[in-house]
Design a protein around this nucleic acid. Structure first.
Length: 649
RNA sequence: GCCCCUGUAGCUCAGUCGCAGAGCGACAGUCUCGUAAUUCCAACAGGAAAACUGUAGGUCGGGAGUUCAAGUCUCCUCAGGGGCUCCA
């Protein structure tokens, strides 16, 4: 009996029931005993909260969960195993390449290699072929755990002689045990877990080649990175590739050129030019922003673009941010082009004595800022060297913080909803390099956290990702392709009120009070927001944002004068209207109007002239004949005024 | 800034050291036409191209070198694209 008791263990299954198994049973056997299909789908097993390989023996009573591709952990394991397969294939093609690291990432995986020359397209094809072979052979992934450090080192040296990277990684483990994973003859230092075998990776594609630095530091040696994606079946790979193609079509740089929204010239890298239609779009965004902010009791100011060095020394930017600032000399004095609006705003605040009765004080500024970003990071409207921040600073008492944050969350919800964006929120906490006391940080961070908790909001915590001067909440918008963009942010600041010695008159009649200061942007950068909108809508903007709202097309030139009357009517009503009277077919004119993403197309011919109507076609395919121009105009004006997302005729 | 790739007509791109090219667009003319026909891509949703004739359009990103000869090869430089956060 005694011996028996030791050799039987009790496993609590995911459905809550329990079963007995012989000691040393593997996750695979358990999965198989529950169901054959589950065993096929199983990637790993969670034993009492820690994830293990399917082959790992289980020696004591435990509660388990079977991990499949549906689980986030399963996806990690899957992608990481694919990166091992790729590394194996790379070594087969380039035996001299040295392995460094190869993690799973959000969209797939990569592996960095130290190799004497960059990979080429043809190398990638060869590597993919080798990967096919490795997958077809269905090698088992085996975990090896040397008992001692010395043994582990010996094992590493045997398989990867002269690999200083892996040695460095192993040294960093300290007292933790090193583990290796092997499939076929390929061995890698790896924490695991891994798939049961290479055959599980049914579909993969190597997507990108890039240079990357060891440990992400430009001072270190440059390695060659290969990115890839992998899925358990072909369908998902196709879906992913389709999404990539779709994203490429929506590229704001391409659409921006086609729709003549903006341009970028060699003469101004990172300094975009706004073309007439881009200016219309930008103005509409600004108009909405200003209307909304005036309604919400913001005062708007404008501060200069160029300001004296003294100001930047007070704000500490001169010491901490100089490499990103454009500086120049004026009359032998140092000036800097502002990279941020706050210091100018501080000067405005300090122009007079403020009373607690004015609080919360909301001061907005559409400020043009310049930042000298690295040339290699510039990209369309997404990363530029000049942009318009829809900035605002709130000054308040500590007691007002929560209601101000609440107010802003409501405001952001309203704005993002206007464009049909979903969003997720992240709370960033104290970074390593930061100022202020622990108590201050805790107080401010808890304030943000409590506001969100009280509202029942879901949010993620980004440990250590706050600004050096205070914690923040970031808003990440997800567009129609599911890509996310960080736009809005709410930051609490304990540095600038000190640096600029901001005070206010309290109830006690003294000025010994420091206001709490909050920085915030909703769009972030108006130009970048435009880029996001272009991709989100694929250039098909809602009516209120469309640079051209309606186009008139005549079937033949004898109807032009009737069309002109309609044109005048729309133009005078403030509608952005264009004419196409060219001697081209209506089909072609419609097609070109569609390519220009004009939301409403009006066709005018014999019937229209006779009955005083127009034929309406919208970009989303609605068609209606015999529409009275006045009726359409009324509908459009109403739609534009309420800034609706869709237009119905 | 660093690594790889790219830069040829307004746009998209072809071009093996040996005459600078195509399609689209623009312009002129023809056609006065009804929400395209048609062709191609896509599992689907959907997406891409858009009549005929003629005309104009180029320091082959810029500079230097090698060569009998450079769009083509080499070097420098400028710009654009992909990366440079994800940790064995």
């Amino acid at each position: 009996m005694m011996a028996n008791a030791k050799n039987i263990i009790r496993i609590e299954l995911p459905d809550g029931s329990a079963k007995e198994y012989p000691k040393g049973v593997s996750g695979y056997e358990i999965a198989e005993s529950i169901g054959e299909r589950l065993a096929k789908a199983a990637f790993a097993i969670e034993v009492d909260g820690s994830i293990k390989d399917l082959h790992a023996p289980i020696d004591s009573d435990a509660r388990i969960r079977i991990i499949t591709y549906r689980d986030d952990e399963g996806k990690e394991i899957f992608k990481h195993s694919a990166s091992h397969i790729m590394a194996d294939a790379v070594l087969k093609v380039f035996p001299k390449a040295k392995l460094t690291i190869g993690p799973a990432i959000k969209d797939g995986f990569y592996y960095d290699f130290d190799i004497d020359r960059p990979f080429s397209e043809s190398d990638i094809a060869k590597i993919e072929k080798e990967m096919d072979k490795i997958v077809a052979a269905d090698h088992k992934f085996i975990r090896l755990e040397p008992k001692t450090k010395a043994e582990a080192k010996a094992h590493l040296k045997k398989h990867h002689p002269d690999n200083e990277y892996k040695l460095e990684l192993m040294d960093e483990l300290g007292d933790d045990k090193a583990s290796f994973y092997q499939h076929d003859k390929f061995v890698d230092l790896c924490r695991g877990p891994h798939l049961p075998s290479t055959g599980k990776v049914k579909a993969f594609k190597l997507t990108k080649i890039a240079g990357a630095y060891w440990r992400g530091d430009a001072k270190n040696k440059q390695l060659q990175r290969i990115y890839g994606v992998a899925f358990p079946d072909k369908k998902e790979l196709d879906q992913y590739l389709h999404l990539l193609r779709e994203a490429e079509k929506r590229d704001h740089r391409k659409i921006g050129k086609e729709l003549e929204l903006f341009s970028i010239h060699d003469e101004g890298p990172g300094f975009p030019f706004m073309l007439p239609k881009g200016v219309v779009l930008k103005e509409e965004l600004i108009k909405y922003w200003k209307e909304l902010h005036r309604k919400k009791n913001y005062e708007l100011i404008e501060t200069p673009i160029l300001l004296n060095r003294k100001l930047w020394e007070t704000s500490k930017h001169w010491f901490n941010y100089k490499e990103n600032m454009y500086t120049l000399k004026i009359d032998n004095e140092d000036f800097a082009v502002k990279p941020m609006n706050c210091p100018g705003g501080m000067l405005v605040y300090n122009e007079k004595v403020h009373s607690y009765k004015e609080f919360p004080l909301r001061v907005g500024e559409l400020g043009i800022v310049h930042r000298h970003e690295l040339s290699g990071t510039l990209s369309g409207l997404f990363r530029v060297r000049v942009f318009t921040q829809d900035d605002a600073h709130h000054f308040m008492t500590e007691a007002q913080m929560k209601s101000e944050v609440n107010f802003l969350i409501d405001l952001y919800k309203e704005v993002y909803g206007k464009f049909g964006f979903d969003y997720k929120v992240e709370l960033s906490t104290r970074p390593e390099k930061s100022i202020g006391t622990d108590e201050q940080w805790e107080f401010l961070t808890n304030t943000l956290r409590e506001v969100m908790e009280d509202r029942g909001m879901e949010f993620k915590i980004n440990e250590g990702d706050g600004a050096f001067y205070g914690p923040k909440i970031d808003f990440h918008l997800s567009d129609c392709l599911g890509r996310t963009w960080q736009c809005g942010t709410i930051q609490l600041d304990m540095a600038q009120p000190e640096n600029f010695d901001l005070t206010y008159m309290g109830e006690d009649g003294t000025r010994n009070h420091r206001p709490v200061m909050l920085h915030r942007v909703v769009y972030g950068s108006i130009e970048r927001f435009m880029g996001i909108l272009i991709e989100h809508f694929a250039g098909k903007f809602p009516l209120w944002l469309s640079p051209v709202q309606v186009i008139l097309m005549t079937v033949a030139n004898r109807f032009d004068s009737y069309a002109d009357k309609i044109y005048d009517k729309f133009f005078e009503a403030g509608i952005r209207v264009e004419r196409d009277y060219r001697a081209e077919s209506i089909g072609k004119k419609v097609r070109e109007a569609q390519l220009q993403k004009i939301p409403i197309m009006l066709t005018i011919g014999e019937k229209e002239e006779k009955y005083g109507t127009v034929a309406v076609r919208t970009l989303d395919g609605q068609i209606k004949f015999g529409v009275k121009p006045d009726d359409l105009l009324k509908l459009m004006k109403k739609n534009v005024e309420s800034r609706d997302l869709n237009f119905r005729i």
